[in-house]
Write a protein that binds this DNA or RNA. Sequence first.
DNA 1: TCTTTACTCCATCATTTGATGGAAACGAGC
DNA 2: GCTCGTTTCCATCAAATGATGGAGTAAAGA
Lengths: 224, 224
Amino acid sequence: MATPLEKARMAPDSMKAKILKAARRVFGQYGFHGTTTRMIAKEVEIDISTLYYHWGEKGDLYEAVIRDIYEDLKLKLSEVEKIIHGRPLAERMETSIDMMTDYLFDNPEISNLILFRYFTKTRHPTGHDIHVPELISDVARSMNLSEDKSRISTRARMQVLAIMNTIHNFISGEGFFRPMLDLEKKEYVTHVRETLKFILVPAFAGKQPCELGAPPDEAAATPG
Amino acid sequence: MATPLEKARMAPDSMKAKILKAARRVFGQYGFHGTTTRMIAKEVEIDISTLYYHWGEKGDLYEAVIRDIYEDLKLKLSEVEKIIHGRPLAERMETSIDMMTDYLFDNPEISNLILFRYFTKTRHPTGHDIHVPELISDVARSMNLSEDKSRISTRARMQVLAIMNTIHNFISGEGFFRPMLDLEKKEYVTHVRETLKFILVPAFAGKQPCELGAPPDEAAATPG
DNA sequence: TCTTTACTCCATCATTTGATGGAAACGAGC
DNA sequence: GCTCGTTTCCATCAAATGATGGAGTAAAGA
């Protein structure tokens, strides 16, 4: 038995899927509270009750959107993982950064929605995403941050969070940062890639003073 | 002639100031659209119309809150600047990270509101913050990222943005990340500081491959 | 042709939310 | 005590918003 989300992902031309895609765009731009069901309905050019017929209440649609983007992100990450597998770390990181920025600039709602989730308190409480810890661990493994593949250290997870958020920030912040820096789209993208590599690569692949960076495969987090 | 915000900052016991402070908390947690004027009024335990009497419409109060947090942030940054002035770069960065995380963990609405601004499209349009470019440039100067103190390169600004956002992320994301990582508050704070230093310091103070990091004082951003 | 099923829309509700007018309370100066 | 300016609250509005009932439509199957 397929869930509504699975159905929508299977049949991308269905009304269910069209609504989901529109909801993704609108929620991505305005956040949960900033989005009205009418805005989504207008985007699809359907009546609001058609939307309710397919997805039930607003919160359920929102949850479906979140699950949907994490599905996409997971797919993309495993695609990246296949390509970088076995390469040296610095190259792995640079390739990942290039591929992920490309992908996220094409799908900025993903970054938006993920950051919204992290930072916003929704007025109606919501279950915690099971996807996130999974995703984090996958990336940590893919970066070889942990020797023990089944038990990813807190330190490694924090590092992955920092990396991914730094990327998301530049994607989601484009609307604010680009006018501020007075850059064309293309320039902005280039600068983002450069900056990400400049900041992120040295910590993991560069030579750093050893008292600063802990060995990446160290598992224990709290000293003493 | 003092603006309403200046008045409120001058007289911190006034009703105006009390409302501003409450608005800061609530807007910081729920964002602009997620916050109702009634929520703020309830927080101060006043009638909603008292709120309107002092601050006018919701959007104006919100703008005042934004200006208010940037004032505070500017003060804090110049306090930090005084302390780290003249020290070597790695030490400057570590001290700044420690001081800023302490400060922001005590005032998480600051991080929340700043990130909200960057990422959210408000349904009613809003003027761009003049504070941000200023702040960015100040930090860039303080980090010696630019030789020409009057003209900060795009590259330097992007780097500052990356740094500051990485910090804000962990502050704002605490409510999401800490349960996910199953950490006590104190552990979380320690991990945040460690991770920030691990990621941020090597890029600027460590030895990195020279083709990656451009010389920090290079002004021109676009090659050719 | 009739029935069933899936879908879509119109009309409508109840609540929430931003916002205001006007009356009461308060305090300073006379 | 009286007046005047300031502040606070109660009552209320109009619009926006989440949500639903029920009628209508179209296609598939008997």
